[in-house]
Design a protein around this nucleic acid. Structure first.
Lengths: 107, 107
DNA sequence: TTGACATGCAACCCGCAGGTTGCATATTGA
DNA sequence: TCAATATGCAACCTGCGGGTTGCATGTCAA
């Protein structure tokens, strides 16, 4: 799985805002999403294309309308394969620190 | 807290590789880190500056050597304030789905 | 003291991301 | 059938990210 496109997709605050909008209300249309961003419709389209590429957003056509749905699975992947690793390291460090302190306490 | 610089810092694969290197062995010097990347020392310096800016890496000088230490706290922040939110949504969706299926099962 | 070593600083180059504008296409509803 | 609506496509502009090179600075060791 290519984490890079997901990280790149998340790097832009407008795209994170789009994900947030879909989090608040899923299945929004392009026009609806545009109302919340201060840029042209085409710019929003490009951002959504990046999110689709990263598999963070899925699209369903209803007539002439394009409905956008949030897919949080890649976020889960990033956590499991990336953030979680460092997190476990941190917890281990905290545990080590705690143990050290207790040892110091005893001496 | 400014999540944006952290996301931006994570968006580059070379920088993620640097974090990985520090994860494997903390407190590495600039020269040591350079040995693992296929680019000039100055390029690595710039990447490390971005990571410092995002507070993902802390630096300690020892004589003429610059030691780099990993700080996973911003990663934890990103998870808690960002990924976790969507994750809870997903779990909730799964739970709803499960309940629906069980209801269908009963009918 | 001096040369080698580790790093910093600054200028520069270039591709591409993020934005725009203009026009085309397809669906809807009166 | 036709005008309004929702979106796509393509060309273009511009700033900046990621890289380079050249030289300066500070520290160590003989």
């Amino acid at each position: 799985m290519d984490m890079d496109i997901v990280f790149k997709a998340l790097a832009d605050s407008s795209r994170r805002q789009l994900l947030d909008l879909l989090y608040q209300e899923n299945g929004r249309t392009l026009g609806e999403l545009c109302e919340h961003l201060d840029m042209s419709r085409q710019a929003v389209t490009k951002h959504l294309a990046v999110l689709e590429e990263a598999n963070l957003v899925a699209v369903v056509w209803r007539g002439r309308e394009k409905l956008h749905y949030l897919n949080p699975v890649p976020l889960q992947d990033i956590y499991e394969r990336w953030i979680g690793k460092f997190e476990r390291q941190r917890l281990h460090a905290l545990h080590t620190l705690k143990t050290r302190l207790e040892e110091d306490d005893e001496s």
